[in-house]
Simulated assay, not measured.
Amino acid sequence: MPGPYDQQIEDLLAQYRRQRDAAAETRRRINETTATVTAPRQTVKITVGAQGEVTAVEFPTGAYRRMAPRELADVLLTTLQQARAEALRSVAGVLADGLPPGVTVPDLLQGRIDPDAVLPEDPAMPDPVRDYVDHGFQGENHE
């Protein structure tokens, strides 16, 4: 015979699983985020990932050959900063729905958050509730 809380427990577990799946999906979308910025005069084109790591540097034209080393360095740094800022904006868009408690944007952006750590497959609960979930109600009068 089903216990008085079976449906509520099932609903809570289903909600928990949806939250856990959503967290994993958010992580996947962040990991796939990239941003590419091309400098004026197409001197350089830089692509970065969600964490700001440089994944590609291209020189679409020969314009860089006519630049002084310092000028080229400045263009590279400016373009890199713009690409990182664009990637951060993209990640912020992914996070628009909100983060679970205990998760910070810096930790998430630096890949230090594992969905299993925030939303483990087996949620924490008091021993009596765990026993009820695992074995059903086994009170003195209902064995």
Score class of each variant (00 low, 15 high):
residue 85 A to I: 08
residue 101 P to V: 09
residue 114 D to N: 12
residue 141 N to Q: 10
residue 2 P to L: 11
residue 35 A to E: 02
residue 60 P to H: 04
residue 13 L to D: 14
residue 93 G to D: 13
residue 91 V to I: 06
residue 120 P to F: 06
residue 10 E to G: 14
residue 54 V to M: 00
residue 121 E to G: 14
residue 63 A to F: 07
residue 135 H to S: 12
residue 51 Q to M: 01
residue 21 D to A: 15
residue 65 R to Q: 10
residue 56 A to F: 11
residue 133 V to K: 02
residue 124 A to G: 11
residue 25 E to K: 08
residue 128 P to L: 10
residue 116 D to Q: 10
residue 29 R to W: 03
residue 61 T to C: 05
residue 121 E to M: 10
residue 62 G to Y: 08
residue 45 K to P: 07
residue 66 R to K: 09
residue 88 L to P: 02
residue 136 G to V: 03
residue 100 P to Y: 14
residue 118 V to T: 08
residue 50 A to L: 00
residue 109 L to C: 05
residue 109 L to R: 04
residue 5 Y to H: 07
residue 17 R to I: 15
residue 116 D to I: 13
residue 62 G to L: 15
residue 45 K to H: 04
residue 78 T to N: 12
residue 38 T to A: 11
residue 132 Y to I: 06
residue 119 L to R: 07
residue 109 L to H: 00
residue 60 P to L: 04
residue 37 V to C: 09
residue 95 L to W: 04
residue 106 P to W: 01
residue 64 Y to S: 00
residue 17 R to Y: 07
residue 108 L to P: 00
residue 40 P to G: 03
residue 2 P to Q: 05
residue 5 Y to G: 06
residue 108 L to I: 02
residue 132 Y to E: 05
residue 60 P to C: 09
residue 114 D to I: 02
residue 106 P to H: 00
residue 46 I to F: 03
residue 141 N to E: 15
residue 120 P to M: 12
residue 111 G to L: 00
residue 126 P to T: 05
residue 63 A to C: 04
residue 52 G to R: 00
residue 135 H to W: 11
residue 49 G to A: 04
residue 140 E to R: 07
residue 120 P to S: 12
residue 15 Q to P: 13
residue 95 L to T: 05
residue 111 G to Q: 00
residue 139 G to Q: 04
residue 4 P to R: 11
residue 26 T to I: 09
residue 76 L to K: 02
residue 24 A to V: 04
residue 143 E to Y: 06
residue 68 A to L: 10
residue 51 Q to V: 00
residue 42 Q to T: 09
residue 58 E to F: 02
residue 39 A to T: 01
residue 77 L to E: 15
residue 127 D to M: 14
residue 32 E to K: 05
residue 98 G to M: 04
residue 111 G to S: 02
residue 29 R to I: 01
residue 103 V to S: 02
residue 48 V to N: 01
residue 64 Y to A: 03
residue 68 A to H: 06
residue 102 G to I: 06
residue 70 R to N: 13
residue 68 A to K: 12
residue 88 L to V: 14
residue 37 V to R: 15
residue 29 R to V: 01
residue 9 I to N: 11
residue 82 Q to D: 12
residue 11 D to S: 13
residue 124 A to M: 14
residue 97 D to G: 11
residue 39 A to V: 01
residue 128 P to H: 08
residue 138 Q to I: 15
residue 123 P to E: 15
residue 108 L to V: 05
residue 50 A to I: 00
residue 142 H to N: 13
residue 19 Q to E: 15
residue 128 P to W: 05
residue 27 R to G: 03
residue 12 L to T: 10
residue 115 P to E: 03
residue 75 V to H: 02
residue 24 A to L: 07
residue 131 D to H: 09
residue 78 T to Y: 11
residue 59 F to V: 00
residue 101 P to A: 08
residue 65 R to L: 08
residue 95 L to G: 05
residue 98 G to A: 03
residue 64 Y to R: 01
residue 103 V to H: 01
residue 29 R to L: 04
residue 23 A to V: 08
residue 11 D to C: 11
residue 3 G to Y: 09
residue 19 Q to R: 12
residue 114 D to Q: 02
residue 41 R to L: 13
residue 129 V to C: 11
residue 48 V to E: 00
residue 41 R to D: 12
residue 107 D to R: 07
residue 91 V to Q: 00
residue 88 L to I: 14
residue 77 L to F: 13
residue 74 D to T: 06
residue 76 L to I: 01
residue 128 P to Y: 07
residue 69 P to E: 15
residue 42 Q to D: 12
residue 86 E to A: 04
residue 94 V to S: 10
residue 81 Q to F: 11
residue 129 V to F: 14
residue 118 V to P: 01
residue 65 R to C: 06
